[in-house]
Design a protein around this nucleic acid. Structure first.
Lengths: 259, 259
DNA sequence: TAGTGGTCTAGACCACCGG
DNA sequence: CGGTGGTCTAGACCACTAA
């Protein structure tokens, strides 16, 4: 089976005098071996010592290169056995949704956030639940806004934060009114973590009117709760996204960032 | 401002004779300094040399510890300047949806996949588009199935793969019929990457009937395309998930895996 | 027991940044 | 210019695996 030890081709793949780091060159070289199938899933890479000797470099440098591939999920190591090519896992889903401003920029659109309402509200049962408090006199800062691009409404957002500071609402908050900025500006607590839940729903009459879609049209609903260092909720928002304008996309498998 | 250089507390934090690697101890120690606020966002960590001297360890070991924090997104480095505590980014969304079997197991439910139909179909316009082919004689293996838990239907899936092998449909495929397994079993190509698109929609008459929900009830629709090494589509599926039973959750901020 | 990856050291030179 | 992080070396010892 292991006849001739299957050298990993010419050592010309590494230029020790290049400005490009050696570990990076080696990582890309091994990555190519895998992508092209010269190294098959499950197959063992040459040992660290072999690679170091073949390319005339230090073992630590080899380890750094392999570390990159491990981080990328392309190979895995087993102490005492070796380093092996991974089998691509394609069945898990990781969806990314950039925030509003990034989306708008990337699409080259003329985005606009319109503030419909901003006021101080007292606690009600829903807010007391969401913020896990029992003091009925707690006051919240309430933002209600529409996000639009190219003149078309895309999302409707309602945001709440516990109101303690008496700071005026800044111009900048109207441009990019993210929940975390709202919290850090008007609350005593610094937000350090958040939880988001994405659900599917149909537009209510109010939402349909604002988003200019039919009543009961399908929409994404995202609820976000931000917490301070003590794990207490300090901000909550509910955003409704037009189902005909938003989708989540996920790419899976081996994807080299530059290759 | 920098009075006394703010030592990072006692060096008793590191036990060089412990079985726990030094770099790991140091990473956890620095992580704690950040989590508890003794190191504030934007603030500089001690330099690598300072940390190495303070704890009597090698600079390479310090670098490995810092590398862990960088990978976790808690700090970032700037060549020539220093290493700094990150500000938590809470506005990007990364939703994870485990695959069906994992979900069922984690929830401790009795899951079941019921095959409604499995047959060979010829190309139609939709399939020729999805697979980017023009040969009308191409044949596809077509799976249609319902996923259920606790006797309640949860999802309805339709899967296609280019049919080349004449392998019989195995018992195991009926138990865990993931698209990638379907492709690797019945197609000539090995799937190496995939693209998934998640959208919101309303149930058609057929879907409503199968999922036992009202017509036009909101649903998640996920389309998955799997590609071979040559970036050619070799499998395509469309899954419909009940909107009242599925949601995507994302946690954001600093979350140490063990701490 | 021999070979593997995991950790660690004590240096070295470099590119970059700021004053 | 001095200080920072980025790269690299040539060793060393260890824990683990397999024969």
């Amino acid at each position: 089976m292991k006849s001739g030890a299957k050298k990993v081709q010419d050592k010309l793949a590494i230029d020790k005098n290049s400005v490009i780091p050696i570990y990076y060159q080696l990582a890309k070289f091994l990555e190519e071996q895998i992508q092209t199938g010269r190294l098959q899933p499950g197959e063992a890479l040459p040992t660290e010592m072999e690679l170091a000797q073949q390319f005339g470099i230090s073992r630590m440098t080899v380890r750094k290169a392999i570390g990159e591939l491990v981080a990328a999920g392309m190979v895995y190591t087993q102490q005492g056995k070796g380093t092996f090519v991974s089998v691509p896992k394609l069945d898990n889903v990781v969806f990314e949704l950039d925030n509003y401003n990034q989306e708008i920029k990337e699409r080259g659109l003329t985005g606009k956030a319109t503030l419909l309402e901003a006021r101080i509200v007292r606690a009600n049962q829903q807010l007391m639940n969401k913020f896990q408090i029992s003091d009925e006199n707690t006051r919240f800062l309430y933002f209600r806004m529409v996000l639009a691009a190219e003149g078309e409404p895309l999302a409707y957002e309602r945001k709440y934060t516990i109101y303690t500071k008496r700071k005026p609402i800044l111009e900048s908050e109207l441009q990019d009114p993210s929940l975390t900025k709202l919290v850090s500006a008007h609350s005593d607590s610094m937000p350090v973590s958040s939880k988001k839940v994405l659900q599917v729903s149909v537009a209510t009459k109010e939402e349909a009117s604002i988003l200019q879609i039919p009543i009961k049209a399908p929409v994404f609903v995202m609820e976000q709760t931000v917490y301070n260092a003590e794990h207490q909720p300090v901000g909550w928002s509910k955003s409704v996204y037009r189902g005909d304008r938003y989708q989540l996309t996920a790419y899976d498998g081996w994807h080299s960032k530059e290759g």
